[in-house]
Write a protein that binds this DNA or RNA. Structure first.
Lengths: 174, 174
DNA sequence: TATTGTTATACTCTATAACTATA
DNA sequence: TATAGTTATAGAGTATAACAATA
């Protein structure tokens, strides 16, 4: 048992170690996602002429057939309102989504996938799923499960201002 | 023991399940990093007036005091050469990095942090580390370790065209 | 007054392709 | 010929702030 008086030093050391551990973890997480994201972004553009944000917006709507308001999309995608307007404009121009007026609040819209948008999304999503499966094919199923569970904890316990407001926890992982 | 003949069906089922598992994993990974990234991006901009790509470029250079060539930065950051030129231009204008001519190959440069750039990066990195530690403070150290290890495996076993060329495996996790 | 969504603006990132200089 | 890096260009994403319409 330790009797000399270095409790503060020890505490600081542990603190610093924890800081480093978290940073290492984050950098590794980031480099993994950047690698995958870069590949997916390129393929989505080359094969479907679509960008990741647009694909994401459609994915959000696919999970919410009843439609989502602009503000909700903004929160879920973590970008400001003006951007959602822009992305929605483009998708609407391509007839993939529609703005449905909200009957109860005339300031608001409900954005929905059109039938064509839903078809297009399903087609892209299937191919997208194959790409992902191929990329992760080097890992054992058991490890993927573990990783999934740990990431769920990250998502639950993450300390950010955003998580407080964020409602996107309900659904992902289709 | 199963004796009726559904091996193909079973295989397909397992395949589909694996596809779904991988997709679920990827979506969870993505939503975690997007949340953290959005927060970090905002804070870096507000507190230091810097963007994530610029911060990343400086981080690469900090790990390579001998300097990196434009092409290497391009590979490591997974963006095309023209972009590296642009980002480097801006950082050079702010006197944070310099292009040192390569004595052996007069087409090439070695990009390095200036002393001021190194100081600025260290200051930002320290604060950045605190942010990250704070965000991950809800998770136990043991879980962070597990997660780190699993992500290392992702990085190693990832099946993408990029990983073949990618040299960024040597270093991250300062 | 507060909220929903849009508009206007400025900046950055990104990819592509043509280009210069050097190897 | 091939390679290292730049330039030119076009298209998107992003944040901020001012704004209109509605609650």
């Amino acid at each position: 048992m330790k009797i000399d008086n270095e409790p503060i030093y020890d505490l600081e050391t542990r603190l610093t170690q924890d800081h480093h551990q978290s940073l290492r973890l984050w950098l590794r997480m980031l480099s993994c996602t950047v690698m995958i994201e870069a590949e997916i972004r390129t393929r989505l553009r080359n094969e479907f002429g679509i960008t990741l944000p647009r694909f994401d917006l459609m994915a959000q709507l696919e999970r919410h057939p009843e439609g989502l308001r602009m503000g909700e999309l903004s929160k879920r995608m973590m970008v400001t309102g003006g951007n959602i307007t822009g992305i929605t404009d483009q998708l609407e121009q391509e007839k993939l989504v529609v703005r449905m007026p909200d009957l109860k609040d005339r300031r608001a819209y409900s954005v929905k996938l059109t039938p064509a948008g839903r078809r297009a999304f399903k087609r892209m999503a299937a191919v997208h799923e194959d790409w992902i499966a191929e990329m992760f094919s080097g890992m054992a199923a058991e490890q993927k499960n573990q990783l999934f569970e740990l990431l769920s904890q990250v998502k639950t316990h993450l300390n950010t201002p955003a998580t407080a407001l964020d409602t996107s926890k309900e659904q992902d992982a289709s």
